[in-house]
């Protein structure tokens, strides 16, 4: 897609001026009703909420510009030197080469990123990836504008991406966080915590076996959440995707 290297910029250390919004926003703690309640709680109504402690979260998804800065310093995460165990062959495939990308893409969310790469980026900043509960809590936005959000989310999920928008394109939600939907899918630290493997039947976890279906969901009419959990469930740590990026979080201490 972006193979015309004509307009590419070679970035040197001097030209690295952070322009993407890399500020962290404080998210006050609270609780939300998880889409898939924990094992053993499904018979209780209402479903007990999950507590989320206060934490910090990137206002916008991490951009190509910020990621470029990272690989400039951390050579082992460059496209040509990435270890296969950490990312599949799609890793940063929209870049021209290790350190060059079309200028108009600089402030778009970085995509074609594996979980290991996303995690390494956050760790280099003494940060981490958000937990799934944290991410979902921020999306849920304390229930603000729920109906319109569900429709918006469903609509974005339904239609394949033609072109990525600039990061920070969408209006901030009640927490001041942008682009939770409408730009990219995002990695979470524990994306592999969604238990719905067919084989968990054998381990007496019938409850969670059916957890993949609508029976155990807290709101079976929330198709958008089904899609998000399906998506995470389809991933492995080395997978990359044209719509898959991330943002970082940090403990508030």
């Amino acid at each position: 897609m972006i193979k015309q290297a004509v307009l590419s910029v070679i970035v040197s250390a001097a030209s690295l001026v952070a322009m993407g919004s890399d500020d962290l926003v404080a998210i006050p703690g609270g609780s939300y009703v998880p889409f898939y309640p924990q094992k053993g709680t499904t018979t209780k109504t209402p479903v007990p909420p999950t507590l989320v402690e206060s934490f910090l979260l990137d206002r916008d998804p991490v951009t190509n510009r910020r990621y470029l800065e990272f690989v400039f310093q951390h050579t082992e995460w460059r496209r040509s030197s990435i270890k296969r165990i950490f990312a599949d062959s799609g890793y940063l495939q929209h870049w021209n080469n290790d350190l060059s990308i079309l200028p108009e893409d600089l402030d778009k969310p970085v995509v074609n990123i594996s979980w290991f790469a996303a995690e390494a980026f956050c760790e280099a900043k003494q940060e981490r990836l958000p937990m799934t509960d944290e991410w979902e809590y921020v999306l849920e936005d304390l229930g603000r504008g729920k109906a319109s959000r569900m429709q918006q989310v469903l609509q974005w999920y339904s239609i394949p991406n033609r072109e990525l928008p600039q990061a920070g394109n969408s209006p901030p939600n009640g927490f001041g966080i942008r682009d939770m939907v409408g730009a990219i899918w995002e990695w979470t630290e524990d994306f592999n915590s969604f238990m719905a493997s067919p084989d968990s039947r054998d381990s007496g976890q019938r409850n969670m076996f059916c957890g993949g279906g609508s029976l155990n969901a807290s709101d079976p009419t929330d198709y958008a959440s089904f899609m998000r959990y399906s998506f995470r469930s389809s991933l492995q740590g080395d997978f990359t995707g044209r719509n898959l990026g991330f943002r970082c979080a940090k403990d508030l201490k």
Binding site: Q38, K39, N192, M195, D199, S200, S203, Q236
Partner: peptide, 17 residues
Amino acid sequence: LGMKYKKLRDGDFEHDT
């Protein structure tokens, strides 16, 4: 390894095999 797990409130874990 591609192993799924989730820590539960009571300190136990759900995980695949």
